[in-house]
């Protein structure tokens, strides 16, 4: 009676490679997901910072407009001893 030849294992190296790739994919997806969340936090932080900077800019622009208002400039000029120029002494720059 012929001895039955042992069948070669089904778990060959391509299968192993596939398994490694799948595990790698799982890790990669987890890493990507983690990165998305981390970047989401960072993006949110940056948006908050941007918002704050815009608010700060708005305040500074308002302050500048107050300081450059015609009446304020006239008041400061008077304090410095300057006098209202006569029309002939005035030149409005474009």
């Amino acid at each position: 009676m012929a001895v039955k030849k042992k069948q070669p294992s089904q778990w060959s190296w391509p299968n192993s490679c596939l398994l490694v790739v799948m595990v790698g994919m799982i890790f990669y997806c987890s890493w990507i997901n983690n990165k998305i969340v981390t970047r989401g936090y960072r993006l949110n932080e940056l948006r908050q910072a941007e918002k704050q900077l815009i608010e700060e800019q708005d305040k500074l622009e308002a302050e500048l407009a107050t300081l450059k208002s015609p009446r304020n400039l006239a008041r400061l000029a008077r304090r410095l001893g300057l006098k209202e120029p006569r029309p002939g002494q005035k030149m409005v720059l474009p």
């Binding site: 969340v37 989401g40 936090y41 993006l43 949110n44 948006r47 941007e50 918002k51 815009i54």
Partner: peptide, 9 residues
């Protein structure tokens, strides 16, 4: 904590 927002600044 906010992870993601649809609001642009």
């Amino acid at each position: 904590q906010v992870v993601e927002s649809s609001q642009s600044a």
